[in-house]
């Protein structure tokens, strides 16, 4: 994630920023202040410039954190993450117009939420007000019982709950034969996940597996349809009298 933010800010070598090295960290902070945040005037950045003198630099950094109003964080990684987010925010506020097109996608996500609302509303046939506090509390409670992660939109959360109930708890699911055979280990496929960032690797694998699962369902439906048709049309014949072995 840090790498992505550095990339977005146009850092020259986003892949090489290592957190183990304090000096590397210091130079990244300086780069952010010089290029993006510009909290101080150029003269005031003098202390931060002392990357080769750790004592001076740490002093300057302590003051810098206070001046940025950074909350007290525990690790160097968290601090960098916070400063990066801050820089991204400043960058965005410089010219929000430039990112307007990206907003449209968020809009579609919102309309998606609206659709969910309408869909659920129609299921309840207007008999229940889905925005009612009691309803929301009920969904949240149900979600926490089923370990569904929190989502700001309780209706999306309700959809997730419905899915779990459908796949795990419904009578049909309970009566289903358990899947036999050796499971295919998650990470043993020949597929390469292009990112070398483990924080992206895992979610990508999960998304791909979900995609494969839904494709499998589709293919199974197709096969079932073919078999249903075969029950009507199939009439395989052979006639050994026709056969002739060549020379």
């Amino acid at each position: 994630m840090l790498k992505l933010k550095l990339e977005a800010l146009g850092h020259p070598t986003p892949a090489d920023v290592s957190l183990s090295n304090r000096k590397e960290f210091a130079s990244t902070i300086l780069w952010l202040e010089d290029q993006k945040i510009r909290l101080y005037t150029i003269e005031d950045r003098e202390k931060l410039r002392n990357i080769d003198n750790p004592k001076m630099w740490e002093e300057g950094y302590l003051k810098y954190k206070a001046d940025l109003n950074m909350p007290s964080l525990e690790s160097q990684q968290e601090e960098l993450a916070w400063i990066l987010s801050h820089a991204v925010r400043l960058e965005f506020l410089d010219d929000p117009e430039q990112f307007a097109s990206i907003n449209s996608k968020q809009n579609s996500a919102q309309t998606n939420g609206k659709q969910t609302q309408q869909k659920i509303q129609s299921i309840f046939d207007g008999k229940i007000n889905v925005q009612d506090k009691a309803f929301i509390d009920g969904v949240r409670l149900l979600a926490s019982k089923l370990n569904v992660p929190h989502h700001p939109n309780h209706l999306l959360q309700l959809e997730a709950v419905a899915r779990i109930v459908h796949e795990r708890l419904s009578p049909a699911a309970r009566g289903r034969q358990p899947i036999v055979g050796t499971p295919f280990p998650f990470d043993k496929g020949n597929d390469i996940v292009s990112s070398n960032d483990p924080a992206l690797d895992l979610p990508m694998r999960i998304l791909r597996l979900l995609q494969i699962q839904s494709l499998r369902q589709l293919q199974t439906h197709i096969n079932e349809t073919i078999v249903a048709v075969q029950n009507i049309t199939a009439n395989p014949k052979t006639d050994t009298k026709l056969g002739k072995v060549g020379r």
Binding site: P236, G243, K244, V245, R247
Partner: peptide, 16 residues
């Protein structure tokens, strides 16, 4: 298999 699957140049199949 040889009886079921006709082989060779000029062979003819048994599926009508």
């Amino acid at each position: 298999l040889f009886d079921h699957i006709p082989v060779g140049v000029g062979s003819k199949g048994i599926i009508p």
